[in-house]
Nucleic acid binder design. Structure first.
Lengths: 141, 141
DNA sequence: CTTGAACCTGTAGTTACTACAGGGAGTACA
DNA sequence: TGTACTCCCTGTAGTAACTACAGGTTCAAG
């Protein structure tokens, strides 16, 4: 490991695009392992650390939660993970993403519907307000 | 206002389906106005209060944020709101819901894609892990 | 040798709640 | 009248996933 491959937190933040504080946060919660330090306490990140942060950031972009990423990383760390375990975790996450899309799509339809019934303009009668007060058409309760 | 129309917090929670503590929370942050109290300090909610909570809960179900609900309620409270203002607020919210759906749909495609490339089973090679480490096919960086 | 950037630590703020601890009030029953 | 039990009161802490700040070292350049 040559010295040039080892970088400090600011440089890691710049290279990875991750917020400086977030890197420390990931260490605090155990996603990143505590890196080596200089004599005066500055963190030194190896290429391995950098790859691990990349893993975390890509996982985050895919919407994995911290807990899911911990599971994924502990599988990787165990060195005897199976592809099947990883796929199960991914498919569970995929299912929750699909559930969220379904929820939001229902919401979208309702909102578009209620907005379409609204004429806009300067009048004080508003079907949206009526809906929210439960006195619109098709109101339940 | 007859006494039977005025209810306490527990009853309001039961009738509205809202969590007991959430009612107090909505008062603390200014969504619900502080209700009348008995001599000993118990809150008494009028039908007007009950309608306002209903408004808030329906708005919440439509995905409006607390801040958006505050805006909506202050329009209603002003008694000279226009339908146009309400519709603008709704359409902004609708746009953000659509943006979320678009984000999640992209996510869903990527996840489905990467999961499909995964054979599962007991092997230690996994395209999902490879992707997360940035060494899968089509990896950027 | 001094300035300024970068680093260190712990802690507080964000959203929208939910839950709990520790106490006072209201009501039913013996 | 006592007491048991539920309800209500308050303030505070916890959740997810960060982000930001204050107050204090350390490093690197001129």
């Amino acid at each position: 490991m040559t010295a040039s491959q080892v970088i400090k937190r600011g440089e890691l933040a710049r290279r990875s695009g991750c917020n400086l504080e977030t890197i420390r946060y990931y260490e605090n919660i155990g996603l990143l392992q505590p890196p080596e330090r200089t004599a005066s306490g500055h963190r030194l990140y190896t290429p391995g650390d950098q790859a691990r942060l990349g893993f975390i950031l890509r996982g985050r972009d895919l919407g994995f939660s911290i807990e899911e990423l911990k599971s994924l990383l502990s599988l990787v760390d165990s060195h005897h993970y199976s592809c099947g375990e990883v796929r199960d975790l991914t498919n569970n996450h995929l299912a929750s993403v699909r559930a969220k899309i379904a929820d939001l799509t229902r919401l979208e339809r309702t909102l578009a519907d209620v907005s379409a019934r609204c004429e806009g303009g300067d009048v004080p009668e508003c079907p949206i307000i009526d809906t929210l007060f439960g006195r619109g058409p098709g109101a339940r309760s």
